[in-house]
């Protein structure tokens, strides 16, 4: 009896110890969602309990956000930029990763190191000169500037992640196909890529998440209300002199996170594996 009881007690203790971590991780989201649903009267009542809704929820803040601000335009911009930057980066990253993982040619090691180094370069190091480059390209204050610049951090990331995946595909599978008369490109398209689909999904998911969340480039390269992304729009355009904006601000933060949350719920395991693969390989 004592032996059977001990593991259960241990299990219970472990769960109890996890509670503070879970509260820390989740409370900000709970409070954000709660604030976005609260009526102003209760929200700005300093005697009300801030942890629950007493006077009934309201969608008023969401309505204000959707109809009185440009939120839908910002979200559309975010989607355009993210989808284009992600697609371009996954394609460029795939071919580069294949070359690094499989082919031997002049300069391959130098290039591999170069990719690794740029993978570590933080975006805040280069945003000033990049703003100039963007202006020269005639893309100042345009969402297309983001489509062009996001691949600078997405491509190294995708390449690095996919290189790890391609290395796990046995060389023999590919060699068999080539013995049977397939060219390298055919072997890549028909044999290697189908095997590496989990890796491709992972790279695409991370690239999507990274570009959706990107902030400093978007803040620096775009400023007009019809060009900015959701993150920038919510953080800069919703904050006016008026102090009674918290409801719609939190609504904006919630809705701006929705696309990522949806992906996250469906592909949680890919996020976990990609996180560890990206860091360790």
């Amino acid at each position: 009896m004592a032996v059977a009881k001990r593991p259960r007690l241990r299990k219970l203790t472990m769960h109890l110890l996890l509670v503070p971590f879970l509260v820390f991780a989740l409370f900000p989201f709970y409070h954000m969602a709660l604030t976005s649903l609260k009526q102003d009267r209760e929200l700005y009542d300093r005697h009300a309990v801030p942890l629950i809704i007493r006077q009934g929820p309201t969608l008023e803040h969401y309505g204000k956000l959707l109809w009185d601000t440009e939120f839908l335009t910002w979200t559309k911009n975010s989607l355009i930029v993210t989808v284009l930057a992600t697609s371009v980066s996954v394609v460029i990253g795939t071919v580069a990763a294949y070359a690094l993982a499989r082919l031997r040619f002049f300069g391959v090691d130098t290039f591999g190191t170069g990719i690794f180094v740029t993978y570590l370069v933080p975006t805040s190091l280069l945003f000033l000169p990049l703003a100039q480059v963007v202006n020269w390209l005639g893309l100042g204050d345009s969402k297309w500037a983001l489509v062009v610049t996001y691949p600078t951090f997405l491509v190294p990331f995708c390449t690095w992640l996919l290189m790890g995946y391609f290395r796990t595909v046995p060389k023999e599978v590919e060699e068999c196909a080539m013995v049977d008369g397939a060219t390298r490109i055919q072997a890549l398209l028909r044999i290697v890529l189908p095997i590496a689909i989990p890796g491709l999904v992972c790279a695409a998911l991370f690239a999507f998440t990274l570009s959706w969340s990107e902030f400093i480039y978007a803040l620096t390269f775009t400023s007009s209300s019809d060009q900015i992304t959701a993150s920038v729009g919510v953080t800069s355009e919703l904050i006016r002199g008026d102090i009674y904006f918290w409801g719609s601000l939190m609504a904006g933060a919630v809705l701006g996170s929705v696309p990522i949350v949806i992906l996250y719920v469906f592909f949680l395991d890919y996020y976990v594996s990609g996180l560890t693969a990206g860091a360790i390989k």
Partner: peptide
């Protein structure tokens, strides 16, 4: 546990 890491930082920081 992983949620804070995937939500756009600028937005969660607003919270």
């Amino acid at each position: 546990v992983l949620l804070p890491w995937v939500i756009p930082t600028a937005l969660s920081t607003l919270g």
